[in-house]
């Protein structure tokens, strides 16, 4: 019985402090995680494909929301010599990647400070269009990497969800 009382005390303390701190903290998280649409191609990307120019969407944190794009858009951007960033680990990257892509491993990148991140991005212009991709399939680091880059001020991020898997299946140019 004493155990139960103590457990309840710890639990209630954690709940109350957790909720209050989360509410006050500017870096607090929503009570329910929202992953809806994470893997869906943005309808705006499809419209843009048909030539219609779209306004940029801001997230509630105030940075430009990366846009999920289908393979056709990725290929079109590739032909326009847009920068491709591969978020996988260097060993996977070296086994094969989209031709001309730059390797920025997410696992290394996300742990850096904003200044270090900018340094790692090198001389890429903040207004440049960047396509973030990874292995494809269930791989999510294309999304995570793009958001990390958007947070430090890159304004035109695209997420190519199909990734390396779909790209090679289409027979598009790769470097091995």
């Amino acid at each position: 019985m004493k155990t139960f009382k103590e457990v309840m005390l710890i639990f209630v303390m954690s709940l109350v402090i957790g909720l209050i701190v989360n509410k006050v903290n500017p870096k607090g998280i929503p009570l329910i995680r929202d992953d809806k649409g994470r893997f869906e191609v943005d309808s705006s990307a499809v419209k843009e494909n048909s030539g219609e120019k779209q306004e940029k969407v801001l997230t509630k944190e105030g940075f430009v929301k990366p846009q999920n794009i289908p393979v056709e858009t990725a290929k079109k951007l590739f032909d326009e010599k847009v920068i491709f960033i591969d978020g996988r680990e260097p060993n996977e990257f070296n086994e094969g990647h989209i031709q001309g892509a730059i390797n920025i491993p997410y696992k290394e990148f996300f742990a850096l400070s904003a200044e270090e991140k900018l340094k790692m991005m090198g001389n890429i212009d903040k207004e440049a269009t960047i396509v973030s991709y990874c292995g494809g399939g269930e791989c999510e680091i294309s999304i995570d990497n793009a958001y990390e880059m958007a947070k430090i001020g890159y304004n035109d991020l695209k997420i190519y969800l199909g990734g390396y898997l779909e790209w090679t299946a289409k027979g598009y140019p790769v470097t091995k």
């Binding site: 710890i10 954690s14 957790g18 989360n22 329910i32 995680r33």
Partner: peptide
């Protein structure tokens, strides 16, 4: 389940810290 994830993310660190 997704609806519980953030509640857990908010409480677990304090359960650990306080205990």
């Amino acid at each position: 389940p997704e609806i519980f994830i953030n509640i857990f993310a908010i409480i677990i660190p304090y359960l650990e810290l306080i205990s």
